[in-house]
């Protein structure tokens, strides 16, 4: 598979507030992520990890800088097209799952395809397939409140991959889960990555980061270590 750059950030800044109380959540980020990578973003709380995930995920616009997603300059794109990009190219997994309680697992997973105007029959087929991929083929009709936390997060992963995105983003996906369930979720991410999916995940747990191939270390809105091998995590955490 030919290597291609999925994410390229150049001098990205994000400033919150005005006047005296400005916060430089991102203070000039240069970063590239290639097709097929499996990265963990780590750093102290408040160091800007979520802010950067939101920029990469096209949920938020940077104050300044260039962002190319899958070769496309997304800084110039309007709100409507940005929604389309989120729908087609990006998959999100959140710490709090964010499933719609009134919908079944299957319907939750079908939702992104609703906004992509996929025909109903195909929606059902692809959503079932995605749920089977995360091991929930037997829970299609369950509502979120009839599922455990780990199962809910698996539904959320199925929802994130169902539109075949080029990039899967997860902000502390295991933050609300116990260690056994965390391992199950990481296994799924690992499998997805092996099948070619680019995965970027924020975590504060070293054990979680050790499952990935690359750690991006954050501090005060800047990337301190863009290419840290997971084995070398001890060097930064000790510092």
């Amino acid at each position: 598979m030919p290597q291609s750059t999925i994410v390229r950030l150049e001098g990205i800044t994000k400033v919150y507030g005005m006047g005296d109380t400005t916060v430089h959540a991102l203070a000039g980020i240069d970063l590239t992520i290639e097709q097929g990578e499996y990265c963990a973003i780590m750093g102290a709380s408040g160091s800007g990890k979520s802010t950067m995930m939101n920029v990469i995920g096209c949920l938020d616009r940077p104050t300044d800088g260039q962002y190319y997603l899958d070769g496309q300059d997304v800084a110039q794109v309007g709100d409507r097209d940005l929604a389309h990009i989120r729908n087609q190219k990006l998959g999100f997994v959140f710490q709090q799952f964010h499933l719609l309680p009134q919908l079944s697992a299957l319907e939750n997973v079908m939702l992104p395809m609703v906004y992509a105007s996929v025909p109903t029959a195909e929606r059902r087929e692809r959503a079932t397939e995605a749920l089977m991929r995360v091991g929930l083929g037997n829970r299609l009709q369950n509502r979120p409140n009839q599922l455990s936390g780990g199962q809910q997060q698996r539904v959320a992963i199925a929802r994130a991959i169902v539109n075949r995105p080029v990039l899967l983003l997860a902000d502390e996906p295991t933050g609300a889960l116990d260690s056994t369930t965390t391992r199950e979720i990481l296994t799924i991410f690992g499998e997805l990555n092996k099948s070619g999916m680019t995965v970027v995940m924020v975590t504060h747990e070293s054990e979680v980061a050790r499952c990935t191939n690359r750690v991006i270390w954050f501090k005060d809105g800047q990337v301190m270590q863009p290419y840290l091998a997971p084995e070398d995590l001890g060097t930064v955490t000790a510092a």
Binding site: A83, R86, N87, F92, H98, P112, Y115, N163
Partner: peptide
Amino acid sequence: TQEIGLRKAIGASGQD
């Protein structure tokens, strides 16, 4: 609000 945020995150436009 959360539902609306989620819908937007997975691709709903303001118009949707």
